[in-house]
Design a protein around this nucleic acid. Structure first.
Lengths: 196, 196
DNA sequence: AAGCAACTATACAGGTCAGTATAGGTGGGA
DNA sequence: TCCCACCTATACTGACCTGTATAGTTGCTT
């Protein structure tokens, strides 16, 4: 596994407050629905400081997405460290980590998917869209690596199957189609991983 | 199955043009990012007509979501009609319908999920959020019905597993984590439906 | 011929958007 | 003592936001 959190880049106290406030608001209401005026008002920091520290709203959005992803990767790496033996149990531990980390904190699904929904159709152009794509491909790579080290017959295909199930559970956290989607996802993953 | 398209409510010509233009723009750029001024300009209709026909932007958004869902349910019911025998093949035909209907047309994933990403955290309050929830629960019910009529051992659980896989594939259409997600989803569904 | 639904055209109101400008305050290190 | 990074405070720009107001046109139906 390649899960190591980034150095988190030592923000100044005011920048920290801005990012914390922006993260809550962006996730809860959407990125376009939250103006910098509101972020500034609720964080008790001036607009000048926001632009001195982050440069633009888009860069603030990127910082928000990267921090959330860093936290998830850290939580995942800790969970995996307590299941060090390659195999089905270690793979299923991903869904335990997701249950612990996302459930409760993520009543609107995946922040990256939600951010992508608000951007235009250009894939390569916008930084936000690229960031989302890279995060998702990292998770796919992680699943494939776990399947490979477990000696699965078709790690590439199985990794994709597992990613689909995880993504579905994250979406379902936001749509409220049914209760406890991450537990159900772990069941589904278990069936995928069981020899037929 | 309960898939019958709604009567589609006979819009006036100008309303039709507005809805067609709004649908493209909402899907491509997000709902908050598209103003009524732009919809009006690109559809060649006046703003007065838009408000005479739809009443508000929110109602226009609802019309957009409902029409897209109606079209999907119609496509699904046609596909299912050509696989009338209860069983695994009929269930997997859902993913063929999704492949035909979504792939190409839906390079940014599910319109309902994307719309939900832009609304606030209140679940019961906003009409858009309720609409999205109802659409997703309808699809879950459809999967469960298909599993029940196929004589599956645990139709409720299997229906949820299938919904997770379908949702995951829709998201992946938008994130570009890997190619051809709907085909991969059908594979995963096939494994879920095969006795262990 | 009258009425009416559907439409065009233009202008406006009141608010919010991202981002900039100007001026000044504070605390720690060289 | 001077400097400098970091911060506050306030005002502003020009564009865009949803929604409304006013006035007039077209074409079908009764």
């Amino acid at each position: 596994m390649n899960a190591i959190a980034s150095p988190s880049s030592a923000l100044t106290p005011a920048a920290e407050k801005i990012l914390a406030t922006a993260s809550e608001l962006f996730y809860a209401y959407g990125i376009h629905a939250v103006g910098v005026d509101r972020i500034v008002a609720e964080s008790g920091v001036t607009k000048k400081t926001l632009y001195d520290r982050f440069g633009s709203k888009e860069q603030l959005v990127l910082a928000y997405l990267r921090r959330r992803e860093d936290q998830w990767r850290l939580a995942l790496s800790i969970e995996l460290r307590s299941h060090p033996i390659p195999g089905t149990e270690r793979i299923l531990a991903v869904f335990d980590a997701a249950d612990t980390w996302y459930t409760g904190r993520s009543l609107k699904g995946c922040s990256a998917v939600n951010a992508r929904a608000e951007e235009g159709p250009e894939v390569q152009e916008h930084l936000v869209v690229r960031e989302v794509m890279e995060q998702k491909r990292w998770m796919l790579r992680s699943f494939v690596d776990l399947c490979t080290e477990a000696g699965m017959a078709r790690p590439d295909e199985t990794g994709k199957h597992l990613l689909l199930i995880l993504e579905g559970a994250l979406v379902t956290l936001g749509t409220h189609s049914f209760e406890d989607p991450m537990r159900v996802a772990k069941e589904a993953a278990h069936m995928i991983l069981t020899p037929h």
